[in-house]
Amino acid sequence: MESEFSNEIIKIDQLPAIEQEQVILLDEKFIKIRTINSLGFYSLMAGCIMTFGFVAIPKSIMIFVFLLLFPILLFLLNIWLIKKQFKVEGYILRTKDIYFQQGYLWTKKMIIPFNRIQHASVHQGPLERYFNIGKLRIFTAGGQSSDLTIPGLDMEDALKLKQLIGNKTGTLKKMDND
């Protein structure tokens, strides 16, 4: 009874699979951006703790120091994570779809076929502008959860990718313009 369907299974093996060697990693400058962001965040946290410490417990320096260790440790952990993330995060461009994997501890691997993409856009924040890094966003009809954001691309690459996706999804793009 299942023989007919098992045929399909053999076909599956012939389908192009995702190979880890093919993954194009994000731009190395992105590590810097992430580190700076992380530094900013945890400095802010440390600042809050310091203000709190001066106001609430001015006399016990030990607790104060102990509390300060907290953001420092978190920051170091974050740095470690950023390095690890850099080694695995990346995308693969195939003829009919785009693949992106992200995360080191919790990972997410997304595939979006070109014929399901509505449009793509490139974003750049101030810090990213300084490092000439761009963020590619790919929109589908599935709403936010199924959209894809690839950060940490070289700005030129990001624009090229956007152009390429635009060409691949040409018909849909024309609709978006009017």
Partner: peptide, 23 residues
């Protein structure tokens, strides 16, 4: 289907398991 995601937690990774989300 618009896109497909495979999501893994550290424990799932160790057991070679994954969640699949079909959008």
């Amino acid at each position: 289907i618009q896109s497909i995601g495979l999501k893994q937690s550290p424990i799932q990774k160790r057991r070679n398991l994954t969640n699949v989300v079909l959008y």
